[in-house]
Design a protein around this nucleic acid. Structure first.
Lengths: 348, 348
DNA sequence: AGGCAAAACTATAACGATATAGTTTTTGCG
DNA sequence: CGCAAAAACTATATCGTTATAGTTTTGCCT
């Protein structure tokens, strides 16, 4: 049944074909200075002809380098939103490099340090990419102490000299607050992410700054957070609006949370765009098709993935260069220059 | 700066601690029959004490087994829908096994055989998991010929003796058609996935069977397919409704496609639930919160991922067992026994 | 006690790569 | 031409694991 797989060529194959010793072949392929130019080109030619690809296990065993980058993925009970985009874009960016991406998930109730410790202790990757960064994040201290390369999707408070990609959630908070204020909203609540995560703080700070500047204050919906399941959010928002009927603006930190919140609003007889406005983040590219249309900003998650991959490689290969860091401003949908979302058509 | 990483214990460490030869330690840990019971338990104890974990590179080099399962992921230009759930659920299912998951993406315009060939030729995984299965799929022939373990998310026509997980899209097609017919719809169109993919055919067949049985026929919207970007779908559906104004029912094979289609309908002045009904698949768990509410069935993608992981491991480790196969019936939302979607509240 | 098989262990080699030290060949120069 | 230095290559060891063949020890039976 199973046809035998033909053996993959190794350095030994090239050695036999060329009459050179194995280490010579190795050094030729690695462009070592003590190999003659003629020999090098001959070896390279043979390697190309027979389709030589270095054996990963041999390489890894000898050098200790794994040529693997691990995406340590905090996941919700209901995984959605932008996870797929993040994974695909990182994997794509690594496609034509020597690196493979492995995905190491952990559960919400678990110690986030566990997968990181495992990877470092067993040397199962050359670098890790972390998401769900907390304001004070034990993983980052752990990795920094050990000099293990990493990149974060999000920042800590003391985002010292570490490579990161982050969407500027402070600017998201500001834009959200400004947009809602301009729409005449006065009592605005935030459906916050878990507050230990730094982007929650950024968002909060940004929105508060604008609201305080306008003589208003920001409410935070307690008891639920944006990571909860859809029905929890829906019910939580409905309950909140019942208790705080004067609320007329909602800021939601994710597309799915916003959609659930909309249903919560409607449960309370609210009409989006009339008795309440919802401001959301579009991390999955179809919020603009959602009805009723929400005010929102776009986040291009694929851009994040591409950058994270590049930054991880640099952290591995050029640890002495200044770390790659990128902070991306929030971009409002529909009106790149201003803060209002005109949309293509109104709801009804 | 970088604190030196402490060396990981190896067989040699245990060998020195126990005074046994390295191969003895190896055989003891692998429960070989020619090692004494006392010795075995002593070795296991030491291994546990010092936290021994076999070195993957050494293992891989010696045995040829990679302990890696590769998810070969066909991606859209706009990756969304259930990719994130699929990735996370597979990775989760592999968490407490010896296997790591690497993600190998390929682009829509690329040869889908390429990544598969790469994996097989370089032996970079012990098994692959494939999605986007076509009715006649070159990758499957390739893998079968070579006896390389694989699992498919979807089926070929000749789904011979291969392990697979599939949602029964024929039953989806039937339920969709039945639901729309019962809602009084008479002119029903399918926003089809690319027709070379087998689930598109299944869906088509299922819907056609029911419609033909009722003396109706199924239209297929030409020129666009459900993988296209949101605005393409929106415009495509709007254009179609312009040309075929008698259309009163739409079947959409994904959540995002459905949402875009709804906007296309509204563009043409249609009112969902009144002048047109949209039937969709809920592969991301918030379609039920979408307004206007659509008629739909649920697919639990995490279930697929878990099963695919298990099936892949069995294909690797017990190739002689009958392959794991699962076909999951479509489950209508809101009414598990019938075909109508009552929803929790109507739109407006 | 002697013999002999079974049990329990060890020695060696190998997977595919590279680092280090050593050897041969070429080159340059007086 | 001879000799030292540079250039170009080779030999050997090693990373951590396991397969194979070989050796020692134990236990049993007569």
């Amino acid at each position: 049944m199973a046809a035998k797989l033909p053996k993959q060529p190794t350095l030994r194959t090239i050695s036999e074909l060329s009459g050179l010793a194995i280490p010579t072949v190795s050094r030729a392929l690695n462009n070592a200075p003590d190999i003659g130019a003629k020999t090098k080109s001959r070896v390279h030619q043979i390697a190309r002809d027979i389709g030589y690809v270095p054996n990963r296990a041999g390489l890894r065993l000898r050098t200790g380098k794994t040529n693997v980058i691990s995406l340590v993925l905090g996941t919700d009970n209901e995984v959605t939103d932008h996870t797929g985009q993040l994974v695909s874009s990182i994997a794509r960016a690594l496609r034509d490099t020597r690196y493979h991406m492995i995905v190491t998930p952990y559960f919400p109730q678990e110690d986030p340090l566990r997968p990181v410790r495992y990877i470092v202790e067993t040397r199962s990757a050359d670098a890790v990419i972390l998401n769900r960064i907390e304001t004070v994040d034990a993983r980052i201290d752990y990795l920094t102490e050990r000099g293990f390369p990493f990149v974060t999707y999000g920042r800590t408070d003391a985002c010292a000299g570490q490579p990161f990609f982050d969407f500027d959630n402070m600017s998201f908070g500001r834009i959200a607050a400004q947009t809602l204020i301009r729409a005449g909203r006065r009592r605005i609540a935030l459906l916050a992410p878990p507050l230990q995560q730094s982007y929650a703080q950024h968002m909060l700070t940004g929105a508060q700054a604008v609201l305080n500047g306008a003589g208003l204050s920001l409410d935070v919906i307690a008891g639920i957070n944006s990571d909860d399941a859809g029905h929890v959010l829906r019910d939580g928002v409905a309950g909140y609006l019942g208790r705080m009927p004067q609320t007329d603006g909602l800021i939601c930190p994710s597309t799915t949370a916003a959609i659930a919140a909309v249903v919560g609003c409607e449960r309370q007889g609210r009409v989006i765009g009339e008795t309440v406005d919802v401001f959301a983040k579009e991390a999955i590219p179809f919020l603009e098709y959602f009805r009723p249309q929400l005010k929102s900003v776009i986040e291009d998650v694929a851009e994040a993935g591409t950058f994270l991959a590049r930054a991880a490689i640099q952290a591995i290969e050029q640890p002495d260069l200044p770390p790659l860091q990128r902070l991306v401003e929030a971009k409002p949908i529909g009106d790149p220059t201003g803060y209002t979302n005109t949309g293509q058509q109104s709801h009804r």
